[in-house]
Amino acid sequence: MTREEIIKPENLVYSKTKVLTDTVMHYCPGCGHGTTHRLVAEVIDEMGIQSETLGVAPVGCAVLAYNYFDVDIAEAAHGRAPALATAMKRLRPEKFVFTYQGDGDLAAIGTGETIHACNRGENITIIFVNNGIYGMTGGQMAPTTLEGMVTATSPYGREQQFNGHPLKITELVAQLPGTYYVTRQAVYTPALVRRAKKAIRQAFEYQKLNKGVTFVEIVSNCNSGWKMSPVKANEWLEENMLPFYPLGDLKVPEKE
């Protein structure tokens, strides 16, 4: 069977979802943001909710997410995406509302909005990409930067005594009664990508129940910020990030 014989519409098993626009993403080669965008868009596509979805983009690497997600979408001020999403969902409760945020946005400047949206139990989905660094501004220390990790503003490594501890915000929000589903995933192997997509699907499905925030953390890489090749960065992620940010569900709904 020749290549030409295989390339037929009926044999197509994977192509880019229509919920992503044709705009080339600005992310660095190998960045987990691109993969995560794809998964969120694929879930929206497969659920058939493109016209029912309202998105909120953050400030940070994903600031231009609004150019990529082919849904009606607003670009929030730094850290305030959950506040925007709160109002959007309250005013249009029949819509699917999601925020897409990085660790600086969600866990530093936007901690208040994150905690309170989660604690109020807003019926929104929060997609949280944690790469332990401020990527957009050039690789500065983030609240999630690991101890000893070298960044532009912790050039000798993050010191616990001086800079405090890396913040496990996902564990924190899982404690709040307003969150319904909290999970931590990664997207650097095919199996993990498939699992992460299931989690994102679950988060959007649960949003229909109106039982509170569904929260999906994606532990991701920042090969530019970490100053590694994309493949090397993924190995570093597995060796260093995952022991501190272990993958898996932190909160799943109790069986009724």
Partner: peptide, 22 residues
């Protein structure tokens, strides 16, 4: 074998996968 692993991993969605039974 058309497993689509490459496409699933691609951050930029630049891979289309086709698979046929033989």
């Amino acid at each position: 074998i058309g497993c689509a692993n490459c496409a699933i991993l691609c951050p930029d969605g630049v891979i289309e996968v086709y698979r046929a039974k033989v």
